[in-house]
């Protein structure tokens, strides 16, 4: 039985690391287009990792083509190909979401959940009245901030309805 050289090349491992790191950084941003870029980078990093997991490249994995040489692992390639197709489809969907968000709001930032804000505001009302750390920094308390967000989203809704 031929034992294949399975130690991955350092360059590829480094590339996986850089792609994943940059991807995660972008994924944590607010605008959907950046999230999309992050998702693409991250997926490419992971796809590369799948290829690396398949071991060193050899002859093309077609029976009768390779002779005595070791062949590349076709399974890793098949999996990577599938993952690429899936990434493509989901990227298209994120683009559509970003476009719809831009149509509705004029930007593609993911907004906070209104209900979360409302619960936070209630909690702030119930909490003992020591100093509000947010207010100390911005001069605006969480309550006011929540109210603003609420108005904004309500306004957005009204805008859409008028738009139809």
């Amino acid at each position: 039985m031929i034992v294949l050289e399975n130690t991955p090349s350092a360059v590829l491992v480094l590339a996986v690391g850089v792609l994943c790191g940059a991807g995660v950084y972008l994924l944590l941003e607010r605008p959907l287009t950046r999230v999309l870029l992050g998702f693409i980078l991250l997926s490419n990093g992971v796809n590369l990792m799948l290829l690396v997991a398949g071991g060193r490249a050899g002859a093309s994995p077609i029976v009768g083509n390779a002779g005595d040489e070791p062949m590349s692992d076709p399974l890793a390639q098949a999996m990577t190909l599938t993952a690429i197709v899936i990434t493509l489809g989901l990227s298209a969907f994120i683009l559509a979401l970003a476009y719809r968000s831009w149509q509705l709001h004029g930007h593609d930032e993911v907004a906070d959940d209104v209900e979360d804000r409302r619960v936070a505001r209630q909690a702030a009302l119930n909490a003992p009245a020591y100093e509000d750390a947010d207010a100390a920094e911005t001069g605006e308390s969480l309550d006011e901030e929540a109210a603003t967000v609420h108005d904004e989203v309500a306004g957005d809704d009204a805008g859409t309805e008028a738009g139809r």
């Binding site: 979401l97 719809r100 968000s101 509705l104 709001h105 993911v110 907004a111 959940d113 809704d157």
Partner: peptide, 14 residues
């Protein structure tokens, strides 16, 4: 594709 659903969908999808 209402505003609320796009917001919720974005969070869910990401």
């Amino acid at each position: 594709g209402t505003a609320e659903r796009v917001r919720a969908g974005s969070v869910y999808l990401i």
